[in-house]
Design a protein around this nucleic acid. Sequence first.
DNA 1: TGACAGGGGGTGT
DNA 2: ACACCCCCTGTC
Length: 315
Amino acid sequence: MADVSAAWSRWQPLAGLPPLSPALLAETLDGGQAFRWQRLPDNSWLGHWGAHVARLRLDTRERVEWSAPVGIRDAVGPALARYLGLDRDFAGLTDTLPWRSDPHLARCVVSLSGLRILRQPFGETLLGFLCSATKQIVQIKQMIALLAGRHGAPLNNGAGADETSWGLETAKGSAVPTFHRLPTWAELARVPETELRACLLGFRARYISQTAQYLAAHPGWLDETETLPYLEAKERLCSLPGVGEKVADCVLLFGAGRLEAFPVDVWILKTLVRRYGLDGWSTPQLAQFGRVHFGPLAGLAQQFLFAWERQEARK
DNA sequence: TGACAGGGGGTGT
DNA sequence: ACACCCCCTGTC
């Protein structure tokens, strides 16, 4: 294994996060909420959000530890706490879900105990889910990586070097390229649609380009949207090209901490049909069912159901 | 090993 | 209902 200690801070425990199984850490970071985490050969996870970079791993007792490039470590600590929602008691929140009267939810909650909802940067979450239409996670991650690499600003590690790989090497011995942040919406507005297409976006390139034009013409619109009440925020997001109810709910759930948002995708659709017997219901009807049945934290319930259904499919 | 379908975490018309 | 794009995956 390559020496990765050189420019990374020493590993330190992440206070406030209960012990986690490797599978659950993977599900949380790489289960469809976020698209910028990768598993490294040493079994740690490398992730990016905003201008932050961090690595996470589990110690022998399954407690989460973190490390960051030394130059930005002091900023990453608090950012990580926010990103992972450490200010929220997810175990307590999960306990308020109606699992006592819902056997399927109960088994999901038990088998995926410890699952949490990330709090990602709002604008990046919008970009990620604009890429998500009829795409699987691996493909979305590929698009996002290309967007970051080609159109995002290189990240300074805080130590003055701008082209460093921070000593991080892959199993094959080649250096990991310089880290880049995702392009901001202002930056995306200046990228020709053809170049977006070259990032494997397909028909999503037009949506992203048009959304970028709109956001560029309306400064502050996105920040305002993040602060609005759920329904108003959702309505505004849905007015963007390429954003429908599902994408809007994902953005609000994973990028704004709105646990009432209940995205209905094909997995949840399968779940509601197969496990709840809702054959023949329309998508709006299913969304309504979810909000009523699962209550004010329907989005949290959704993540348990979603993870369970994907897990079943992989068996 | 290399082609070749088939289908994909949705939105807009 | 169907087009929109085109990469991934499984299969032959």
